[in-house]
Write a protein that binds this DNA or RNA. Structure first.
Lengths: 201, 201, 201, 201
DNA sequence: CAGTAATCGAGACGGTACGTCCCGTCTTTAT
DNA sequence: ATAAAGACGGGACGTACCGTCTCGATTACTG
């Protein structure tokens, strides 16, 4: 009934404790290799070799390559939902921050693959979806505050709003190589999305 | 100046001509295996075996597994941009048609992977981008006609419009497992997108 | 100066040790397949399948098909240089024993191929030549003892003697399909070779 | 019943006649490629490409790669059995000539492979054996003349004599990389072989 | 303080797909 | 009928990676 076990602090128990150092090095190496080699060239053997760690040490912590990748991305800092009281500008800022993260990490290469795998791998979905949901929070929070302020109608579904804001951005980011994602272009997309949110269906 | 050469009919020339039969069987088998096995379980050896064709015959036509997959999708019928003079309804119809295609073919599993590969494989991008562009046409055409009718402002960028319509849908289709894509939900997304298109930036 | 290192017992070292069982099964299967399929029909995939071993396990030990074959032959028991004090009879016996081994194993099919490959593959020569040298030992020993007994002149070169004994035999064995290699024929060849060894050049 | 057909001059008949030019170019290219690439790197596709000839043109003439190789070697000039009346010197000369041919052509690489194939390919044996027999003739002739002169006993079997002369040489030539085959070494081998031929068994 | 148990590194293992290569055959159009 | 060109089926090659396993060597907690 309780999910405490999952969160519970690992009790010492007998036996040699897992090295936190190893965990950190593995995740760092994972991130670095994803960037330098791309997802396709990313290999657990390479991670093990470069991190000076055995493959068992990796598999003891994460059940598959994909889980490791998700864990690595999980450490990227969360988006900070700026609150200047201006809906459009707040959204633009958080979107640009997201774009920047995607471009500097290997997310653009890895995310599609993870998405593809998730479809048929329930175990992966279990790790992936919370991460994704966490990534969606900032936009939702900004929209929520705007509703509270009365800038947006009360009946607006937060998920729908998020889809409208991020959908076009993600399309340009992942699907089209050369989509315009300058601040100006983003502001147009966001402005139009916000306009679409106003009023009832 | 002319692109005719690229489109020109392949002249017979000397040597045994490539078997159109083989090509057809390979693409059919590819599509079928993608659906039945998923992208990860999809193998060129399986294609060769099931299509009763040698691997050389496949590799002679497409330089890699990914190119073959794109070629297979390339044969899926183009979306037909219905024209009932009602912008929102026309868009809803074409979007639902797209959703249906994605769900009945293996697109949902394959597209993310292809997108991921495209990022670092220029040769793949060359084959992938035209296909994607072709898929974007119907929505653009509908929007274009609406502009001609005066239903939408003349200055509206077609790509932007397309991103606003398809972005949220694709987000729900690929990224979120259980996004609501019923006709009602789609109509809301499309209606809001259209509202966002109206007026200037 | 010492060659001990090469012969030294493999120290355990870290990591999972290589399975001696696997090694044995692979070599057994190799030998059996060479006999049943002939050299041309001999395939590493077949070996892997029949030995219930992965190809990696084979390639981890031997760098190529040819090296594996040599390793398999390397296990055939060495010729036993009989010593009845009769030079000709001792030689006849060891030659007949050699002929028998060649005929019952796949040597007759494999040896020529290996010889052909050796010419341009230094790595192969490195494995092949010691094996060949080992095969030459028995005849040399018999000749050496005969020299010690005073049955052959002291200045006789052992290699030359060996070439004179085995050359005609190998010619008949490998090059001519139907060369007479009965005990009587062999005794004639050996007798004449021994007569040629007597006296100075 | 008659074998005339095989030897009969090709009657013109209908249709385009076979190009003698093509035949010559193919054989030349075969020889050259065997030398430059070695037997393993020798490919019919390479022959066709370099000779500017289609593979069909090759297969119309010879039923397999091996037959083509034999045909190419078949054009090497026959050994000329010098006759200076000195048995040993005549043999030494013809042996050295043979050694030279083997070393300048690709024979050393190809012969072992052909020998290996011959064992299980009757059709190949049919082409190979006559060639081999032809190569054995000079030594036999020299021995025959020596018998006629009374230098060797009348009962000596020619094949046995040939085996004794060529066996050791071939052993050094094909099997051992670095066998001494200088004129002096060859003279010793031949002298000893001749001594072995003298007297009865 | 000895014993127990989980961890570590190293690296072998079965399985399987990849993309390349070559053989010998077949199918075109052109001589 | 031959020729050049080149596609075809078949099948082996050697490489790579995955996720599992087996070692000997460390660490801690436990009795």
């Amino acid at each position: 009934m309780t999910k405490q076990a999952a969160v519970a602090v690992k009790l010492p128990g007998p036996g040699r404790p897992r090295s936190e150092e190893a965990e950190r090095v593995i995740l760092d190496t994972t991130m670095q290799l994803l960037v330098s080699e791309g997802y396709a060239g990313f290999t657990l053997d390479k991670v093990a070799a470069q991190a000076r760690v055995s493959k068992s040490t990796i598999y003891r912590r994460w059940p598959s390559k994909e889980h490791l990748v998700i864990a690595a991305f999980d450490r990227t800092p969360p988006l900070t939902p700026a609150d200047k009281g201006n809906l459009v500008e707040d959204l633009v800022n958080v979107v640009l921050e997201f774009i920047n993260i995607v471009r500097t990490t290997a997310l653009s290469a890895a995310l599609p693959v993870l998405v593809g795998e998730r479809a048929k791998n329930p175990a992966l979905a279990e790790a992936f979806d919370p991460w994704l949901e966490r990534r969606r929070m900032p936009v939702k929070q900004i929209v929520e505050r705007a509703i509270a302020r009365g800038d947006l109608p009360a009946g607006l579904d937060l998920n729908t709003a998020e889809d409208m804001v991020m959908g076009p951005v993600i399309l340009r980011l992942f699907f089209y190589g050369k989509g315009d994602l300058s601040r100006i272009a983003v502001r147009e997309l966001v402005s139009r999305a916000v306009r679409g949110m106003e009023g009832s269906v």
